[in-house]
Design a protein around this nucleic acid. Structure first.
Lengths: 363, 363
DNA sequence: CTGAAAGCGCTTACAG
DNA sequence: CTGAAAGCGCTTACAG
C-alpha cells in the first residue's frame, strides 16, 4: 500500500507516529518507544535525549495507536463493554443505564477508556455472532451483559485466556461475574409480605429462562417456605394465558398479594399493572404488589396511584463499578478477591404493600 | 518477546493464523488473505486452490485477528465520543442519554464501535485539558458534545485534519455540527402562546452563555416581535435575583405566561417550578408555562399538577444518529450534504398552556 | 548507555 | 492467474 492511498484523510496530514518523533528528535524509533513508555531502559537514557523526544512528541501531538500497541502485545488501556441486548433501549425506564453509568464512572477513575461494542456490525439481532464477539479483542479485557448470553463465543475467549467479566450471575463454572443477590432479596420481600399478614401470595415471572429470573424464583420459594406458606401454584409465568383472567382467578382464590419480577423488558410488571388497572383495583388498598428488582431511578409508579413500588433495588451502578475493578484485576493477572461476586440488593419500602383487607385488624 | 512469553493461553495451543493455513494448503500467506476475504483477486484464483484454502481454514478453526486486521487496514472502525460534561449524570432525568442512544444506534448500524472518552482519564474536571482531548485521535473520527466546549484543543484537531463533528450548533466558522433549530422552535412556542391570547410574557433563561441558550433567546424575541409584543424586559436570567420575588413582580405586572428554557442542568425550570409551587399557583389555570427544549422521555411534570409541559422536544436521538452519519462522511472524505445541520424540533402540546384568565372569554 | 532488527497477524500494491 | 514483498505502528529481546 502506498502512502498516497492511505491518505484519504481530508486535510491530508496523517497522524504522527513514533518514527516522526524519532526523526525530529534525532533518535531511533525504538528509543522513542522506550522513552515514551517510561520503561526502565527508557528512563536510563540521557536526560537530555529524553527531553528532546518528549518535546517532539508534545509538539507533534503524538498519541499512540491503540491497535498497534495491542498487536505488539502490550496493553492499550481500553476496556470493552459488550451487550447482548439493546444497549440503549428507546424506553429509558427499563434500561441498563445505571450499569453503564457505573462502568463508565469506574473506568474513568481507573484511567481506562471504554469501547462500546454495539451489537453486531450489521444486524443488531446477530450480536451473538461469534465474529462480532471477537471484536472485543482490541480491548485489554471485556465486560459482558445481557439477559441472554450465547455461550460458545465466550468459551472461545476463555480458552484463549482473554480476560472478561460478566455483569450478572452465570451458571457456567469458572466464569467471573459480578451479579446481584436476587435469592436473598426476593426471599426478604416475601418475608415482609408475610409479616404484613399475607398468607395467600402469587409470583409472576417472565416466561423465558435466565439466571436472574431463576434466582428470584428460588428466593420467592425459599421465602414462602420460611413463612410456612404453601408453594404449590405460587409461581406463574407471563405466558400462562390472559393476565386479566389470571388476576381474577387469583382474587377468587383469596390472593391478597402479588409479587412480580422486573427485568429489562419490564413485560411482566407492565402486563400485570395494566390488568390491575383494568380490574379497577388499587394498590395497596385492594391488592398488595411487590416488585423484584426495579433499579433505583428507573422505577415506575404503581397502578391506580402514584406510590413507588415496594420491593428491592438492584445495585446496578455498583455492579458496573465492581465489574470494572474485577476485570482490571483479571487483566493484571491477580484477582484480589473472589472472581464470582454477588452484591446485596437494597430493600425498598415503597407504598404498594400493606396489610391485607381481611387482616387489617392486626399485624 | 519470545513465543513462550506470549503463550499465556491455558490450553497451550495458539490460535491458527493465515500462515498456518498457507502451510497446510500449500499456498502463500498472502493468497490465504485474498481468498478468505473474498476479494476480486481472491475469487479469481483457481477454484481448486480456493477450496483447499477454505478447507484448511475450516479444519484449523481459523478466525481472523481483529487487531491485526484493523492495523493493516487504514481504518480501525472506531468512532470517538467525547463529552465536556458528565457523560452519565446520576440524575437520569437531565441527561444526554437520548443522544448517546442515537449515537450508539447509528454506530452499530454502520459497523462502527464507539470509544467513550470519559472526560480526562484522571480528573473529570480536566476534560478540557488539551492532552485529554488529543486522545480522541485513536479513533477514526470523533463526536463532541457538551454545553460548554473549549475551543483550543478542537482547533488543533481541525488543523491536523482530524475528522470530527459537534453535536449542537457552534459559532466557529467551518466547524461541522448537527444541532437543533432552537430559533424556529422557540419562536413557534411564543406564537402559540400569543395565539392562545397571551400578551404579557416573560422568558427565563439560564445565567450562563451557550449557543443553545442564545438561539432560544433569539427565537423568543423573534416570536414576540412577530406577535407584536413588547420585548423590553421580556428576558430574565436565573441570576436575576430571587425567583420568588421575580415571579411575584411578574404577576403584578400582569404576566399571564412564562417561557423557560430547559438545559442539561435543568436549573431554570426547576427553580421556576419550585417558585410557582411556593406561590401556590397552578398551571395552566393561574399561569401558563412553556418549556423550551425538554427531551422526549425525560420531561418532568408541571408544578401543581401532573400535566406534561407545553413546549417542544429536542430531537436528541436523531441528532446523535445524524452526527454519526456526518462523521462517517467526513472520514470517507466525501460529505454528502451540508456539514452544518440544524434539525427541527417537535412541538409539544402539553397541558401547561391555556388561554389567560383575563382572555378566557374568547380565543 | 544506545541502536538496529525482528516480530505481532494481517492487507494490498506490485512484479512475475 | 499466482506469489513474494512491503507495510500498518507499535514492543522488546538482543547486539554493540
Amino acid at each position: 500500500m502506498t502512502d498516497a492511498s492511505r491518505t484519504e484523510r481530508p486535510a491530508g496530514r496523517r497522524r504522527p507516529r513514533q518514527s516522526d518523533i524519532a526523526r525530529v528528535a534525532g533518535v531511533s524509533q525504538a528509543a522513542v518507544s522506550l522513552i515514551l513508555r517510561g520503561t526502565p531502559s527508557g528512563m536510563a537514557l540521557a536526560k537530555e535525549t529524553r527531553q528532546r523526544v518528549l518535546d517532539a512528541a508534545e509538539e507533534l501531538g503524538y498519541v499512540p495507536d491503540p491497535v498497534a500497541t495491542r498487536l505488539a502485545s502490550a496493553r492499550n488501556a481500553m476496556l470493552g463493554l459488550y451487550t447482548f441486548s439493546t444497549t440503549f433501549p428507546t424506553d429509558v425506564a427499563h434500561s441498563y443505564y445505571p450499569i453503564l453509568a457505573g462502568v463508565e464512572e469506574e473506568a474513568g477513575a481507573q484511567g481506562q477508556d471504554l469501547i462500546l461494542f454495539t451489537g453486531s456490525a450489521r444486524a443488531a439481532a446477530r450480536a451473538d455472532d461469534p465474529a462480532a464477539v471477537r471484536r472485543v479483542r482490541v480491548a485489554d479485557g471485556c465486560l459482558f451483559f445481557g439477559r441472554h448470553v450465547p455461550e460458545e463465543p465466550i468459551r472461545r475467549l476463555a480458552e484463549d485466556g482473554f480476560p472478561f467479566v460478566y455483569i450478572g450471575r452465570r451458571d457456567e463454572p469458572g466464569i467471573p461475574y459480578v451479579g446481584a443477590d436476587y435469592v436473598s432479596a426476593s426471599a426478604d420481600v416475601v418475608a415482609r409480605l408475610a409479616a404484613a399478614g399475607h398468607r395467600e401470595l402469587r409470583y409472576l415471572r417472565e416466561h423465558d429462562q435466565a439466571p436472574a429470573s431463576d434466582d428470584r424464583q428460588e428466593g420467592v420459594l425459599r421465602g414462602a417456605r420460611a413463612a410456612g406458606m404453601d408453594t404449590a401454584g405460587l409461581v406463574a409465568r407471563t405466558d400462562g394465558g390472559d393476565l386479566d383472567t389470571l388476576l381474577r382467578r387469583w382474587l377468587d382464590e383469596g390472593v391478597t398479594g402479588v409479587v412480580v419480577e422486573q427485568t429489562d423488558t419490564g413485560a411482566a410488571l407492565a402486563g400485570l399493572g395494566a390488568a390491575v388497572d383494568r380490574a379497577g383495583l388499587r394498590c395497596p388498598q385492594d391488592l398488595s404488589l411487590a416488585v423484584l428488582g426495579a433499579a433505583t431511578g428507573t422505577r415506575g409508579r404503581a397502578p391506580g396511584g402514584g406510590a413507588a413500588f415496594s420491593g428491592f433495588d438492584v445495585p446496578m451502578r455498583e455492579m458496573g463499578r465492581d465489574a470494572v475493578r474485577l476485570l482490571l484485576e483479571l487483566i493484571a493477572g491477580a484477582p484480589g478477591g473472589a472472581t464470582r461476586r454477588l452484591l446485596p440488593c437494597e430493600p425498598v419500602e415503597g407504598g404498594t404493600v400493606a396489610a391485607p383487607r381481611s387482616a387489617k385488624k392486626n399485624t
